[in-house]
Design a protein around this nucleic acid. Structure first.
Length: 791
DNA sequence: ATGGGGCTGCTTTTT
DNA sequence: GCAGCCCCAT
């Protein structure tokens, strides 16, 4: 055998061994795993095993480097070696696994690997799966969301940008408040500038890496934009003074850091040899810029995504990132994964038909080897209660038959508001369920309050959080005192906390309040000492609740105090689970995680409960049976989205595509003729998307095919209808309780009482009630939460 | 200074 | 329908 032949045979045998070892993957998936050097774009259709590829590829690089593709051969290889490799092909996998490491070419240590995921849950899944592969210590991989990875960088370098250690992360609620404050401070005209629009504009500016100056320069012509720029500038200054960053800052400031301090960027570029990005279709300009800053000269960057599943345009995600990736990285390999392993062909055909109408997309054809399965059911129901009842019946019947468990069902909705009636029916039907992403747990007042205390211990400069709890529970520090404190803070450039510490020095602070101020700062000081002495976050929650008097306050509250105390205990268990997950058990790490944690992170697919969530939250998940209720024009596609033109409509289509492709075995789509939403009843038409589903893959009444008239955007649902067109309100809609003089009643706050008089007021009536302990009150019958005192 | 009642306005999707 | 906000009564 000549030397060239020997080389060819050895390489072929090596590759055959790798192919066999990765035999569970299909050819395209293996190609994706083995293509490690240089830029790679993987277009991964729904259910095409994207996560598997991502995990296997990272594991492959760590263990074998570029072994498969490399043409390197050791110089001492003999014919006998080649023969041995060929024989090894017939051996079991464990034996092959022992040989493969000897082929390794530049394997990459864990700590030089970075992986961006869309949720924290996805990151822990990747780590867990890699951890189970022999010899990989997944804990050293930097895997996490964009926000998480940026926080890892910012925590080391934020001081270079003028932030202090332990800066606070503002959630959406915090930043909304701060923006409102900023609007007040610059006298922004609320008529012209609804706060929601300002919040969006500022967020969008940050997504596009525009600081206030840049924004102002760019928008110079536009009066409205100039006003927004003013608010933006003020807001940004307030954030800095409070030593806080909002969600968008976390990304933007990191990019700014890397661009302003090349030595910092160089460090990360040198350290991280391989980057991968999941859900690339949902990245925005700032995120792509970040990726480019972090990618070293070798451009070892892999992105996975599916342009058809891009559903975060409203958050600044730009589908252009994925559509033009191969133009930005000219040498990039493009690999398409088009085999779907998840859904039956009927479900897949239905979803494909809906997405096919979009124009701005990479052409692709997903296929499956799975059988056709049951047809997609599309069913009209007279109203939402019948609709929900129908869904409950299917769930209970199927579980009753032993066909499925509750955990096999998901109900996916377009908007959070739809969760309400569905939840009520789930409760009424006694179906165990888990609701994801609606009223977020952390938005409860008591949670935010405790969190405000805790963050004040780490960052005393945060006036907003200080003001939140300085008088909660009451410390006799009222509006007048606080106004004085804030004014002094503003004038002297100090934080409110610093002013309060030296309350005695300021004449403007009422004498009576000075002692309270000092007591408060002393309390915070004491608590901070507890942190410094090594108390863990879960212990600090207790300590804060006790020492601040918050617990005592709740114990006084007969009405809801117990629930709220339980919520605080729940926060403790959140703290414990976060501490379990993270090596860093500090208070600031806990707070950071709390702010950046999303609700899907808590979704437990093992729990035997029906899951109810928005389509957005369901991204990346799969279920045996999926219900898609409220598939009506105006709701899905959402009429507001349609106002944004064809881009909006295409996104709604993608959203529908995501929703449908979550289903493995059964997909049931329903719509109601009559629906009550936002307090109004209205008539609905089936979603336009339903007409695109081919007849041969769906079942349902024939009327579906005739009843299709294209609805005018915004017409089907009443939100923007003119007064005259509003459907006549049903008088029976919500019966106002009829009370009579002399009725014995119970009020949740005032306790027992008796109706003194009833005076009609339109459809409502005004009640005069005398309570046993609370005296006489006048109440509106519809608003007062009165119950008959039956006992 | 505080707390409750009642009015107004909004209501897509979220790290 | 609900939450946030303002105002009024204690």
């Amino acid at each position: 055998m000549g030397i060239t032949d020997l080389r060819g045979e050895w390489l072929a045998a090596k590759r055959a061994l790798f192919e066999k070892y990765y035999g569970r993957l299909n050819g395209k998936q293996r190609e994706a795993v083995f293509t490690v050097n240089g830029p790679v774009l993987i277009l991964a259709g729904a259910g095409s095993g994207k996560t598997t590829v991502l995990v296997e590829r990272i594991g492959y690089i760590i263990r074998f480097g570029n072994a498969y593709m490399s043409d390197y051969m050791p110089s001492d290889v003999t014919e006998e070696d080649v023969a041995r490799l060929k024989r090894a092909l017939d051996e079991p996998e464990e034996e092959i696994a022992k040989i493969l490491p000897s082929f390794a070419v530049n394997p990459c240590p864990e700590y030089r690997m970075m992986a961006f995921t869309f949720t924290n849950k996805a990151a822990s899944e990747i780590k867990a799966r890699l951890g189970s592969v022999g010899g990989i210590d997944a804990g050293f991989i930097w895997a996490g969301t964009f926000h998480h990875i940026c926080m890892l960088i910012l925590r080391v370098h934020a001081e270079k940008l003028g932030y202090k250690e332990g800066f606070t992360v503002y959630d959406a609620d915090d930043s909304k408040k701060a923006i409102k404050e900023a609007m007040k401070a610059v006298n922004a005209d609320e008529r012209m500038l609804p706060d929601a629009a300002v919040i969006r504009a500022i967020s969008r500016a940050k997504d596009n890496l525009m600081d206030p100056e840049l924004y102002e320069r760019d928008m110079a012509g536009d009066l409205r934009a100039r006003a927004i720029a003013q608010v933006y500038r003020r807001y940004q200054a307030d954030l800095k003074r409070s030593n806080a960053m909002d969600f968008d800052d976390i990304i933007m400031q990191t990019v700014l850091l890397l661009r302003t301090f090349p030595e910092v960027a160089d460090y990360y570029r040198a350290r991280f040899r391989y980057l991968s990005v999941d859900e690339f279709q949902d990245t925005n300009i700032a995120q792509f810029a970040l990726i480019r800053e972090l990618t070293g000269p070798a451009d070892n960057l892999m992105v996975v995504g599916d342009d058809d599943q891009s559903i975060y345009r409203f958050r600044g995600a730009t589908i252009e990132n994925i559509l033009s990736f191969d133009k930005v990285y000219k040498e990039s390999a493009v690999i398409r994964l088009e085999q779907n392993y998840r859904s039956t062909s009927n479900i897949l055909d239905a979803a494909n038909a809906v997405i096919a109408k979009n124009r701005n997309r990479h052409e692709k054809s997903l296929w499956t080897e799975r059988e056709s399965g049951t047809k997609v059911q599309i069913l009209p129901l007279p109203n939402q209660d019948r609709e929900a009842g129908f869904i409950m019946k299917i769930i209970k019947d199927t579980v009753g038959n032993g066909g499925c468990r509750y955990g096999d069902f998901a109900i996916l909705v377009r908007t959070n508001a739809l969760c309400n009636y569905l939840e009520q029916h789930l409760i009424r039907a006694g179906v165990p369920y888990r609701m994801i992403g609606t009223v977020r747990f952390n938005t409860r007042k008591e949670i935010q309050d405790i969190r405000a205390y805790l963050s004040l211990l780490v960052n005393p400069d945060d006036d907003q959080r200080l003001l939140r709890i300085v008088n909660e529970p009451s410390r006799k520090i009222g509006a007048k005192t606080l106004a004085a404190i804030m004014q002094i803070a503003q004038q002297t450039g100090q934080s409110c906390f610093a002013v309060m510490q030296r309350a005695d020095d300021y004449e403007a602070i009422p004498k009576a309040a000075r002692e309270s101020c000092k007591n408060f700062t002393a309390l915070i000081g004491e608590l901070r000492q507890a942190v410094d002495s090594g108390k863990r976050p879960d212990e600090m929650i207790d300590l804060v609740a006790d020492m601040s008097g918050y617990r005592a306050m709740l114990e006084q509250d007969m009405e809801s105090g117990e629930d709220r105390l339980n919520n605080i205990m729940e926060l403790k268990s959140t703290a414990l689970s976060i501490m379990q997950r993270r090596d860093d058990k500090s208070l600031s790490c806990f707070l950071e995680e709390l702010a950046l944690q999303s609700d899907v992170d808590n979704y437990d697919s093992a729990a035997d409960a029906v899951v109810l969530m928005t389509v957005h939250s369901a991204k990346g998940l799969e279920f045996r049976n999926v219900f898609l209720p409220a598939m009506e024009d105006g709701i899905f596609p959402n009429s507001r989205a349609l106002l944004e033109g064809s881009e909006g409509e295409e996104e709604e289509r993608r959203l529908a595509y995501v929703a449908m492709t979550r289903a493995k075995d059964n997909l049931v789509i329903t719509y109601a003729r009559e629906r009550m939403l936002y307090g109004q009843t209205s008539i609905g038409l089936p979603s336009v998307f339903l007409a695109d589903v081919p007849d041969k893959v769906k079942t349902g009444p024939a009327e579906l095919r005739e009843d299709r008239r294209r609805a005018v955007p915004g017409h089907a649902f009443p939100a923007r209808q003119k007064e005259a067109e509003k459907p006549v309100a049903k008088p029976k809609s919500e019966p106002i309780p009829k009370w009579r003089e002399g009725d014995a009643v119970v009020h949740p706050a005032f306790g027992k009482g008796e109706i003194l008089s009833v005076r009609p007021a339109g459809p409502d009536s005004i009640l005069e009630v005398v309570f046993e302990t609370a005296g006489t009150k006048k109440l509106m019958a519809s608003a007062a939460r009165l119950r008959p005192a039956s006992e």
